[in-house]
Structures are given as structure tokens and as C-alpha cells.
């Protein structure tokens, strides 16, 4: 019961943060709401017995990625987005009913042979299990990610060092 209560608290926080990310006109508030969502999601990961991923999630997303986002937002001094009248006019009349139909169909198919299962108390999310899998069976993909990170780093340095020009 306590777990379910915690799940709903974190879920409401995550959805509220997500809505604020989408609707807020000031990008700084969007970034701060995204941090709220990420922390709430870390709570959900812990409820799913994925402790290692929860810690790494906080360290990588809240610690690195969101700092980078806020840094760039403050660096660029972005103005508040103004409204575009009539941008959603046709989307409301056609898009929303079609999305509703799609979700009803998918939901019907998904719940037709539905049998509820519950979160199990496993050790699948511990550092031990993940480390064993990561350094034995998945050691090659793990090493390749280091190449990906080096490529991203070189690309970011190159792009931000050089002043680009428009080629007609």
C-alpha cells in the first residue's frame, strides 16, 4: 500500500513536471520542471527495484545534462516565446479525435487478454547483476559506447569552436 502511494505521488510529480515543460513559455522554467520530472522518475526506478539505474539516472541527467541545458539557456539569453495565433486550429479538430481513436484501439488490443502482474522483489537491478552482464556478455557494446562518447566530444568541441558560415 505504501508502495502504491509512493508510486502515485511520483507519477503525479512526473506528469506535472512534463506538462510544465511543454506549456511554459520561459525555457528556464521548462528546464527546472524537467529536473522535477527526472527526480520523480528516479523514484519510480527505485520502486521498480532498479537501484543502479536510479542512481546513474540522477547523476547523468540531473548532474550533467540539465546543468548543460541551463548553462546554454543562460548563455544564449533567449527571449520568452510569443504566442502564434491559430497554430493549433486544425490540430484540435482533426488530431485530437484521431489520437483518441488510435489510443482506444491500442488500448482495446492491449487489454483484451489482460492479466495483471505486479512488481517483483528481484535482484535484477543491483550493481552486481548489471556489472556481471556488462563486463561479460555485453563488454563489446560497452567499449563501443566509449568511442561514441569520444566522437560526441570531438564534435561538440569542433562545432562550438568554429564560427560557421552560410554557404549560398
Amino acid at each position: 500500500m505504501l508502495q502504491l502511494t509512493l508510486f502515485y505521488i511520483f507519477a503525479v510529480l512526473a506528469v506535472l513536471g512534463g506538462i510544465m515543460v511543454v506549456v511554459h513559455r520561459n525555457p528556464i522554467y521548462s528546464a527546472l520542471s524537467l529536473i522535477l520530472t527526472l527526480f520523480a522518475l528516479a523514484g519510480e526506478y527505485i520502486l521498480l527495484m532498479a537501484h543502479f539505474i536510479a542512481i546513474v539516472h540522477i547523476a547523468v541527467y540531473a548532474g550533467a545534462i540539465m546543468v548543460l541545458f541551463l548553462f546554454v539557456i543562460m548563455l544564449l539569453n533567449i527571449r520568452i516565446e510569443e504566442r502564434a495565433p491559430g497554430a493549433l486550429r486544425y490540430m484540435v479538430y482533426i488530431g485530437v479525435p484521431m489520437a483518441a481513436i488510435l489510443f482506444l484501439q491500442l488500448g482495446y488490443l492491449a487489454f483484451k487478454g489482460f492479466q495483471e502482474v505486479y512488481v517483483k522483489n528481484t535482484d535484477v537491478g543491483t550493481v552486481e547483476r548489471i556489472g556481471q552482464a556488462l563486463f561479460s556478455k555485453y563488454v563489446l557494446p560497452f567499449e563501443i559506447t566509449s568511442i561514441l562518447l569520444v566522437v560526441a566530444m570531438v564534435g561538440a568541441v569542433y562545432l562550438s569552436k568554429r564560427k560557421l558560415e552560410i554557404v549560398e
Binding site: 547523468v60 548543460l68 547483476r129 556488462l134 561514441l148 562518447l149
Partner: peptide, 19 residues
């Protein structure tokens, strides 16, 4: 869990290059 780990790595790289 391994896949989530890989997604996080790709997200970090993507954010660096994208920003």
C-alpha cells in the same frame, strides 16, 4: 537494464552535440 544504460550514454552524447 543494460539497454537503459546504453540509452543514457546516447542521450548524453546527443545533448552534447545538439547543444
Amino acid at each position: 537494464q543494460i539497454f537503459v544504460f546504453m540509452v543514457m550514454v546516447v542521450a548524453a552524447a546527443e545533448v552534447a552535440v545538439g547543444l
